[in-house]
């Protein structure tokens, strides 16, 4: 959709949109504020990495949720099921390939985790396709029914997972190469947390690249901003939406694998337990905004870890407090999107 040269009256470049960078500063500001409160530098490094790792995983899970909402006003209360499904698939894959996962050779360890992630993403993506067809489409456009029916999807999904894998919690040990910690000076950082941060950054970068450099990304961003306009230009926003929903489900599956490995165990209720956290993150970020979701997730991760160390009693409510503070400052979330 480049501006054609035949109409010189149209200026070549659109006027610059002033970038809103203040929310970006929140993360370093928070980290710096926490440093004197914690006192010890090495503890601070450990906690910061723990918080970033947790935040990255939450971001991977929540990004699909926020985009799906932004595009079609669909809020999937059953998003947690995809996390649980991904995590249980990781258990099965790692269990089936146990010799690889317990091997001393790093390449086999990495391979087994990659296979688990791939399987989880393919399966949750496929389930997402069916879920959209069966659960979301029949009640499309009716907010009340949508909340109820996606909640129903959550209940049934969780029960089906119990049918397949059983109701009990299952341990999910990390492959050998991912265990242990790396020392930065005196600060010990768990190796898996570093890996989680790296994967999170890759997913974030890939997502931003797709959204800003491809035509599909352009359509998604335009659709989030103003759906009717995109439709009136002749694009099938429904088809786009199905694609985003499937991608969001697959990302939730990937996040589930990572979350399961992070907790080193899975249980059927893990998805619904994370649900609340996801909602808080996407509200903080501004519903529909990927960038806001990223910052929101990192803030939630960091605050949870810092308060968990400083004032454990408050840690249980830290997310809600964070949400209240952010919403008092910006009632529509960090980055408000479109007309909402």
């Amino acid at each position: 959709m480049s501006s054609s040269a035949a109409t010189p009256a149209v200026p070549d470049a659109l006027p610059e949109v002033k970038a809103d960078r203040i929310p970006l500063l929140l993360i370093p500001a928070l980290a710096l504020l926490a440093l004197p409160a914690i006192g010890s530098f090495s503890t601070w490094v450990t906690l910061t990495f723990a918080g970033l790792a947790m935040g990255m995983i939450i971001f991977i899970i929540a990004s699909g949720l926020t985009l799906v909402f932004g595009l079609m006003d669909v809020l999937n209360f059953g998003h947690g099921v995809f996390i649980t499904l991904g995590a249980f698939l990781a258990v099965s894959v790692l269990g089936a390939m146990a010799p690889w996962s317990t091997s001393d050779r790093m390449i086999l360890n990495v391979a087994v985790v990659l296979v688990a992630m791939l399987v989880a993403m393919v399966v949750t993506g496929a389930v997402g396709l069916g879920y959209e067809r069966l659960i979301i489409r029949p009640v499309y456009g009716n907010g009340l029914k949508q909340i109820l029916i996606t909640m129903g999807g959550m209940i049934v999904g969780e029960e089906l997972i119990k049918v397949i894998w059983g109701p009990q919690a299952i341990p999910l040990p990390l492959p050998t190469a991912f265990r242990g910690s790396v020392l930065f000076g005196e600060a010990a950082v768990e190796r898996y947390r570093l890996i989680a941060v790296v994967i999170g950054l890759i997913v974030f970068a890939a997502m931003i690249w797709v959204l800003s450099n491809t035509k599909v990304g352009l359509l998604i961003r335009a659709g989030v901003h103003d759906r009717e306009m995109v439709e009136s230009l002749g694009y099938h926003i429904r088809r786009l939406f199905v694609g985003v929903f499937v991608a969001g489900s697959a990302l939730a599956g990937l996040g589930g694998v990572m979350w399961g490995l992070y907790q080193q165990g899975v249980m059927p209720q893990m998805g619904s337990a994370v649900n609340v956290l996801l909602f808080i993150v996407i509200i903080i970020g501004g519903m529909g905004s990927v960038g806001g979701c990223f910052i929101g997730a990192l803030l939630v991760g960091l605050v949870a870890n810092y308060t968990g160390f400083l004032v454990p009693k408050v840690a249980l409510f830290s997310n809600i407090l964070l949400m209240v503070v952010i919403l008092l400052w910006r009632p529509a979330g960090l980055y408000s999107v479109g007309k909402r």
């Binding site: 659960i135 029949p138 009640v139 029914k145 109820l148 029916i149 129903g152 999807g153 209940i155 049934v156 029960e159 089906l160 119990k162 049918v163 397949i164 109701p167």
Partner: peptide
């Protein structure tokens, strides 16, 4: 057998719920 396990009663009520809603 697993679908009809007594602990899975919520599954059936959940399905009934979804069908009811739409």
């Amino acid at each position: 057998r697993d679908l009809l396990h007594p602990d899975r009663w919520l599954l059936w009520l959940g399905l009934l719920f979804i069908i009811s809603v739409y």
